[in-house]
Amino acid sequence: MQLDALDKELMCSGHVGCPGCGATIAMRFVLKALGEKTVMVLPACCWSVIAGPFPQSSLKIPVIHTAFETGGATASGVRAALDMKGDTETTVITWAGDGGTFDIGFQALSGAVERNEDFIYACYDNEAYMNTGIQRSSSTPYGAWTTTTTGADWKKLRKKNIVEALVAHRIPYAATANIAFPEDLIRKVKKAKAIRGSKFLHIYASCPTGWRIPSEMSIKIARMAVQTNIFPLYEVENGVNYTINYKPKEYLVREYFKLQGRFRHLKDTDLDQIQEMVNEDWGLLLRKAGEHA
């Protein structure tokens, strides 16, 4: 696979991400696509740690760490300042986890994209509060164990559909991407970079530690999420034009769930129910894209 991206590495070795960390793979691809003229806003998330303790940085771009719920707002300020300085070349990107995006940072994100601030908001989604020790977020999928949804109290609520929430803001560009599909991911990042206004990227980033999967399965699981329609790859322009980028064959969600410790407690009947939910979501997406199943 040859990527249409920078050969130079803007992420350094020696970071403290867990072995097989999907969030670091996502970061690496995104930076390769954006290049050096990038300022990153980093609200609290795993990457607050991976980026390195003082005086170290694992990123070769300027980064501003900021409070958990401020990803959208801080980026707005950085963009405003750059604009005032006449710097329209530099890309501003917020790099937030699912907690900082779906939950605590949702207001600032909504505010920023409603103002159509010219920046990219990238959410690397590992489906729980991993940095604090695997607590449930509104991105945690139906059926998952977390340290706050244990035993019989596994999460019995759906994952928030963040992309649709952003699409409802009618922003110029919203897309899903996945670390197992680097070419698609890089194309989307480059596309987002070229568009003025607010861009949202929802990047699936597997978490071996929190999902109870072997580190070497990180990409495999990520790929399966797409193959099973659990995490479809699609993009939406101006809140209305849907394009589905990948139409998998009829893979069953069961295989995806069976490989992950966080779903170990699920019974066949639960998996059947999840399959129905996934089918329903997929059907909904197809309808939005004006396509037939």
Partner: peptide, 23 residues
């Protein structure tokens, strides 16, 4: 630039971002 933010919290966050960028 006048940022008509959606809360005081975001307001100060935006200023932190802007001031860090040198204005």
């Amino acid at each position: 630039k006048y940022l008509r933010v959606e809360s005081e919290h975001s307001c100060m966050a935006a200023l932190i971002g802007a001031q860090s960028s040198g204005v």
